[in-house]
Amino acid sequence: VTLFVALYDYEARTEDDLSFHKGEKFQILNSSEGDWWEARSLTTGETGYIPSNYVAPV
């Protein structure tokens, strides 16, 4: 499993987005949709879409 870490804070803009804080780690569930990836936060357990340019591989 490839994990990603948040480089910046992000505040959700829609109900499908996932808010997160810098340093939070994610498991990517689906990265085939372009710039927005479906991810699960390893901190909160919540699932939603995150901007791929806000995260980097651990």
Rank of each mutant, 00 (worst) to 15 (best):
L7M: 09
H21K: 15
A6R: 00
I50D: 01
T44N: 06
I50K: 00
D35H: 12
F26T: 00
P57T: 06
Y8L: 08
T44M: 02
G34P: 14
D17E: 15
G45H: 08
L18T: 02
Y10V: 02
S32I: 11
D35C: 12
A56T: 11
T43E: 13
A39P: 00
A12R: 08
V5C: 06
F4I: 03
R40A: 05
Y49E: 03
D35K: 12
S19Y: 03
G48D: 00
S32N: 11
L18V: 05
K25H: 12
V1I: 13
L3M: 10
T44W: 03
T2D: 11
G23H: 05
E24A: 06
V55R: 00
E11K: 12
L29W: 06
F20V: 04
A39M: 05
A6F: 01
T47Y: 08
D35F: 15
E33H: 15
F26V: 03
G34D: 12
L29E: 05
D9V: 03
A39R: 00
H21S: 14
Q27I: 15
P57I: 08
G34M: 13
K22M: 08
I28W: 02
N30P: 04
E33Y: 13
G23K: 02
A6N: 00
P57C: 06
N53M: 11
K22L: 06
W37G: 01
G45W: 08
T44S: 10
L29R: 05
I50E: 00
G45D: 06
E11T: 13
Y49R: 14
E33C: 12
Y10H: 06
G23N: 06
E33T: 12
N53S: 14
L29M: 09
G48M: 03
H21P: 05
T14R: 15
G34N: 12
P51A: 04
V58L: 13
Y49I: 09
T2P: 11
T44V: 02
T43K: 12
A6G: 04
S52R: 13
S41A: 07
H21T: 14
I50Y: 00
Q27N: 08
Y8W: 15
T47I: 14
P51Q: 06
K25I: 15
L3D: 05
S32C: 10
L7H: 03
Y49Q: 09
Y54K: 06
A56S: 09
G45Y: 07
L18R: 02
T47F: 07
S32W: 10
R40F: 10
T14V: 07
P51R: 08
N30R: 09
V58Y: 14
E46W: 09
D9G: 06
Y49N: 08
F20C: 02
V5K: 05
D35Y: 15
V58C: 10
K22A: 11
L7T: 04
S31I: 12
N53Y: 10
K25G: 04
V5R: 05
L7Q: 05
L18D: 00
A12N: 05
S41W: 01
Y8D: 07
L7E: 04
P51H: 08
G23T: 03
S19A: 07
K25V: 15
V58S: 07
I50M: 02
P57E: 09
W36I: 08
E24H: 07
A6V: 01
A6E: 00
S31Q: 14
E15C: 12
D16V: 14
S19L: 02
P57D: 04
Q27T: 11
V55F: 09
V5W: 07
G34Y: 10
Y54L: 10
S32T: 13
T14Y: 15
K25M: 15
E33D: 15
S19E: 04
V1N: 14
E24W: 09
H21N: 10
T14W: 15
V1F: 13
L29Y: 06
S19P: 06
I28Y: 03
S19D: 04
L18S: 01
S52W: 10
S52C: 10
N30S: 12
H21V: 15
Y10K: 03
V1E: 13
F20K: 00
T2G: 11
S31E: 09
E11N: 11
W37Y: 08
E24M: 06
K25F: 15
V55P: 01
P57K: 09
E24L: 02
F26W: 01
V1L: 14
P57S: 07
D16H: 15
D35G: 13
H21L: 11
L7C: 07
Y49W: 14
V58F: 13
S31R: 13
I50L: 07
G23M: 03
E15V: 12
R13W: 08
E46K: 15
D17R: 15
P57A: 10
E15Q: 12
F4S: 03
V5L: 06
F20N: 00
S32V: 10
V1R: 09
T44H: 04
A12Y: 02
G23E: 04
G48H: 02
S41E: 03
Q27W: 15
D16Q: 14
L42D: 04
D17C: 10
E46R: 15
V58R: 04
E11S: 11
E46H: 13
S19W: 03
Y10P: 00
R40N: 04
F26A: 00
Y54D: 01
E24S: 04
A12V: 02
D9Y: 04
I50N: 00
T47C: 08
Y8M: 09
Y49M: 14
L7G: 02
V5A: 05
S31H: 11
E38G: 05
K25N: 07
I28D: 00
D35W: 12
Y54I: 05
T44E: 02
Y54V: 04
V58T: 08
Q27F: 15
E11Q: 12
P57Q: 09
D16K: 15
D9F: 04
L18I: 11
Y54R: 06
A12P: 05
E38W: 15
E24N: 06
I50C: 01
A56I: 14
T44P: 00
L42E: 07
D16Y: 15
L7P: 01
T14P: 03
T14S: 14
E38V: 15
T47L: 08
N30F: 08
E33Q: 14
W37N: 01
S52A: 12
E24T: 08
A6H: 00
T44C: 04
P57F: 07
E46F: 12
